[in-house]
Write a protein that binds this DNA or RNA. Structure first.
Lengths: 340, 340
DNA sequence: CTGAAAGCGCTAACAG
DNA sequence: CTGTTAGCGCTTTCAG
């Protein structure tokens, strides 16, 4: 039904390969012929069938993006960066939500491969078992891991400098005068969060600050809420004198804020609170949250750029690793401790 | 490089068309042959090339999703619903961010058509000029408009019952005892917001409530903030006695909350605030926002279902219109006015 | 039930 | 510079 290259060829009295060249090549076709072909194509509203082209070229100009859940504002931002970069490079992005489920994730990967995507962006590989990871390693297209440190040699990675971010938070709180600090974070072994904690603790210790209280829990609003509630309500807690809290991410910080409010304390007068991520909402809550900015958009963008470079040359596809800088965004959730 | 249907055929000693049938058809092939083929396919780790298949069948099993910005949590939720439904139906979803820019939007549409998507979900068509809309109308694949009332006969639509939502807000505030109410909303002519305002005003008037103050501004955090600030600070404002505000959406409500805080007033003691959308963040802010829930996930899901049904039968592709219900989510940002 | 053959729409040598 | 000829990997008649 739609008009094909053949129609254009017939209508302009040339061979279809000439049409193809006129439409794609920069040269190798007489200017006049090209003009003619282009004119006819336009008149006929010809739209090349990209799947046919893909079949012969072996490239689909499509990238796959596998995130746990696009509703997570972090990934939404990454996705936007990725999509913009993909579009700039002439690629489409297909969206997959894995829910961090290994089976689902593998299904998506295979589905993407069947569609012959040119590359895949993925936010986590850690839920996969050994066999699955090896399966992935011999994937025919390049894969870049979002938000993962450069551990696995087989995949490219893009992530923020989590350790530096942790250190930034430490310096800031310390310089404000805080000495009794708590850090609330997710599970004990979680690549990014662990790196943040590490940077935080190291910076504090090099500042000769008393060791902070570190609480592990769920990496979620609820987790941040519960951890903080425990911190503030348990009378036996050493935490009695805590003047500042560093939450491993903004979501947890939101939970912490709720718990702080409920305890009748105020931010920042009674307790300073600092987060990590700089989600858009962190400027929306009251008081606006001071936090460590992660370049989410740039992470997506960089990942796609790596992917497209890798997809281009069939040869040297050496994995590439990129660590992006973070920065402190000072808003209104921190101040010097009351005691000072 | 990857293993093709030909390899499977050779390896199992049958013709490629038999392989094709064994893999796709439910019948018409001898059970033993089928077993054999399936076994060989598995052993060889055969993955059908879906673009090749698409070329001959004319279907890509791909849907396009064009939203203004996936970072808008509303669309992220819609996208998730759409993706889940698409996946359930064996389709992929390609993500496009139009920024509500007409040119970009048309480029995406054409790009999607070149990829031969089976259908398109789109969140707005109102930025397009007449010619562009007509162009769209004769699009070879079905299009469903998200979040649009069933005005245009040419496209299918899915949206929430905005008017009913506005009425819900009105009843709630009125029953709480509020009589001096303000409604802050976006531009004067904005399909959804207008419908909300309409439902709100109508319900109030049928309740014999004094007419509320309606303020038009930007449909954004900033807009909500500025409108509310004007409302609270302008001494000349009739608004002196306002006890409740209905914001046309949660984002504006967040802005309003900020302005209210800054004016030294408290929610809900001094002013009640109700939003619309029920974004996830609305339960995160302090105090948790009472709002009208819109079934965002379901909107995406319904849209994809319509699309897939329409894409299936080449024949009767009558546009379909669906209006989904809304509901009041009572949290802590509203109470009876102090005067009572 | 299975094989042979045609062809989806396009690109890519290879001649001319 | 342009036409001819092969396919890309698969589905789909059409015979057998």
């Amino acid at each position: 039904m739609p008009v094909t290259i053949k129609d254009v060829a017939r209508e302009s009295g040339v061979n279809i390969s000439t049409v193809s060249r006129a439409l794609n090549d920069e040269y190798g076709v007489h200017p006049e012929t090209r003009e003619l072909v282009l004119a006819v194509a336009k008149r006929l509203k010809y739209r090349p069938n990209r799947v046919a082209r893909g079949l012969v070229t072996g490239k689909s100009n499509t990238l796959g993006l596998v995130v746990s859940d696009i509703r997570n504002p972090f990934f939404a931002e990454v996705a936007r960066g990725a999509e913009d970069a993909a579009r700039a490079g002439g690629c489409d992005l297909v969206l997959c939500n894995s829910d961090l489920d290994a089976r689902k994730q593998m299904e998506y990967i295979h589905s993407l491969l069947e569609k012959r995507v040119d590359g895949i962006l993925m936010n986590s590989v850690s839920v996969l078992n050994r066999a699955q990871q090896q399966d992935l390693a011999k994937c025919p297209v390049p894969i870049v891991l979002l938000n993962r440190a450069a551990s696995r040699k087989t995949f490219s990675t893009v992530c923020a400098d989590n350790e530096a971010g942790g250190a930034l938070a430490a310096d800031y709180l310390f310089n404000l005068g805080h000495r009794a600090i708590a850090h609330i974070t997710g599970p004990r072994h979680h690549g990014n969060l662990t790196a943040r904690a590490h940077g935080f603790l190291r910076a504090l210790s090099s500042l000769n600050c008393p060791e902070p209280l570190v609480l592990y829990g769920q990496n979620s609003f609820q987790g941040g809420y519960e951890l903080t509630r425990d911190l503030l309500f348990e009378p036996a807690r050493i935490a009695a004198g805590i003047t500042a809290i560093f939450a491993a991410n903004d979501i947890m910080a939101f939970g912490a804020a709720r718990a702080i409010h409920e305890s009748g304390r105020r931010i920042p007068c009674d307790i300073s609170l600092i987060g990590f991520d700089n989600l858009e909402l962190s400027s929306v809550i009251h008081p606006p949250l001071t936090t460590i900015h992660q370049p989410k958009y740039e992470i997506g963008k960089a990942a796609v750029e790596i992917l497209m470079r890798l997809a281009d040359k069939k040869g040297g596809r050496k994995p590439e690793h990129r660590v992006l800088g973070v920065e402190l965004i000072e808003r209104q959730s921190c101040q010097a401790p009351a005691a000072l």
